[in-house]
Simulated scan of single mutants.
Amino acid sequence: MFEKLKAMLTANHARFREIHHPSEGNSERVATVRGTEVGQGAKAMLCSAKEDENILILAILPGDKKLDFKKLAQAVPCKKITLAAPEVATEKTGCVIGAIPPFSFSPHIRLIVDPGLLARYEEIAFNAGRLDTSIVLNAEDYVRISRPSLHDICVTE
Rank of each mutant, 00 (worst) to 15 (best):
153 I>N: 02
82 T>D: 05
18 E>I: 08
26 N>Y: 05
6 K>V: 13
81 I>H: 04
84 A>F: 00
9 L>D: 09
58 L>N: 04
148 P>S: 11
105 F>P: 07
8 M>P: 00
153 I>Y: 06
12 N>M: 11
37 E>L: 12
146 S>I: 04
139 A>P: 01
149 S>C: 10
1 M>F: 09
85 A>I: 02
144 R>Q: 11
101 P>H: 15
148 P>D: 10
36 T>K: 15
86 P>F: 12
42 A>M: 11
74 Q>P: 00
148 P>F: 11
98 G>H: 13
106 S>A: 09
114 D>R: 01
82 T>W: 00
17 R>S: 13
145 I>L: 12
90 T>L: 13
116 G>C: 03
82 T>H: 02
137 L>T: 10
73 A>P: 13
145 I>T: 11
3 E>I: 06
118 L>T: 08
122 E>C: 05
77 P>Q: 08
73 A>M: 00
19 I>N: 04
124 I>S: 03
123 E>Q: 11
2 F>Q: 02
98 G>D: 09
46 L>Q: 02
91 E>Y: 06
60 I>G: 05
99 A>M: 02
29 R>H: 08
35 G>T: 13
142 Y>G: 08
95 C>K: 01
86 P>A: 00
143 V>P: 05
145 I>M: 08
71 K>M: 10
111 L>P: 01
54 N>F: 00
45 M>G: 00
153 I>C: 00
